[in-house]
Simulated scan of single mutants.
Amino acid sequence: MKNTRLSNQHQPPKADKLLLVAVLILAGLGLIMVLSSSGIMAERYFGDKYLFFKKQAAFFCIGAALMYACWRLPRVFFYELTYFWLVVAVILLALCSFTPLGVDANGAKRWISFGLFNFQPLEFSKIALVFYLAYYFSRKQELVRTLSVGMLPPFLVTGLLCILLLTQPDFGGAAFLAGILFFMCLVGGTRLTYLFGAFTFLAWGGWLLILQEPYRYKRWTAFLDPFKEPFGTGYQLVQSFYAFGSGKLTGVGLGAGKQKLFFLPEAHNDFILAVVGEEMGFLGMSLFFLLIGFIIFRCLRIALLQEDLQDRFTAFGMTLILTVGFLLNPAVVLGTVPPKGVPLPFVSYGGSNLIVSFICVGILLNLSQRRHA
């Protein structure tokens, strides 16, 4: 009995299966909501009401396979190729902005066409940036509080990615990466005076960029009073409010929502949560939020349990990618922050975000084992 107990103590911890189960449940509910929210539009414009559902199901399978691969691969595969992932991210963003491979949609080039599907380089850039920042801060702890080491290299690397995003243009994507940089610097040990001074300057620059483009300024002010222009800049948010208001406690019933009948734009994408609120009501929304809260809790727990500094920073960064999407998407849909196209991880339609979200979870499952590579 004593030998058995000792052998069990030397066994490496198992992966966080509760996180895995919660993610699969949320992604499964997301598939159901994509089917419900996209069927009418897909049938009218493409003659196949299951088109978006079938595509999302394929992305689900690809993402799940990559999640499993990231879970089982030795972590040196990620760490020793840190700069390689960063270079790939820069190349993909450059290809998207400056070559015919970039897909032009509504005046922006944010996707690269690979024939059967389009890929958004921004999503891959999030993971590449986290790997770089985790690698950098874990190895520069003794100098991280100096200006030349603790700030300049991370800011220059992130700045390059943000500049490439602004050429697309994707102001929101650049802000997302800047947010990752801020929180990684915060936990990495950068001096608060340097950090807040730099981000005050960047916020001022961002505000100038908003004022420079009328559409950005209208987006910024639309959420303050969307009913002032209910058929203009406030239209999408107003329709979202109508959806939530119709749902009440239990919802109108799965598939019975009306706002997806060409009233609510992007019903299966960024505003899919409004369809959830209409069809599943307050109780259904609560289920989604409980799952999201549980996933965030398990991810943060994995980060806190890491003994190696690079593992801890990496886990925190992957958690950050998911958490920002989990928090920002509902905030936009509920009208508490300016509108920005941020998908809800595992729920919104879109292959790039779904696959990258699965990859983040795969890396977290890998780290949850806390075994040596």
Rank of each mutant, 00 (worst) to 15 (best):
N269L: 04
N269Q: 01
N269D: 03
D270A: 07
D270G: 11
I272M: 13
I272L: 14
L273K: 12
L273W: 03
L273D: 00
A274W: 10
V275H: 05
V275R: 07
V275K: 06
V276D: 00
V276S: 12
G277K: 06
G277E: 13
G277R: 11
G277V: 06
E278K: 09
E278S: 07
E278P: 01
G281I: 07
F282D: 14
M285Y: 10
M285K: 03
M285C: 02
S286L: 15
L287R: 02
F288M: 05
F289I: 09
L290C: 15
L290G: 15
L291R: 05
L291P: 07
L291C: 00
I292G: 04
I292E: 11
G293Q: 09
I296M: 01
C299T: 04
C299R: 02
C299K: 01
L300G: 11
R301P: 08
I302D: 12
I302N: 09
I302T: 14
A303G: 09
A303T: 09
L304W: 13
L305R: 06
L305N: 04
L305Q: 06
Q306M: 05
E307C: 01
D308R: 12
L309Y: 04
D311Q: 04
D311K: 07
R312P: 03
T314R: 09
A315E: 12
A315G: 14
A315Q: 05
F316D: 14
F316A: 14
G317M: 12
G317Y: 12
L320Q: 01
L322P: 15
V324I: 15
F326Q: 11
F326Y: 01
L328W: 07
L328S: 10
L328P: 07
P330A: 00
V332R: 03
V332A: 04
V332L: 10
V333S: 05
V333R: 08
L334C: 06
G335A: 10
V337C: 11
V337S: 02
P338C: 05
K340M: 10
K340S: 03
K340C: 03
K340W: 11
G341D: 05
G341W: 08
V342T: 03
V342R: 04
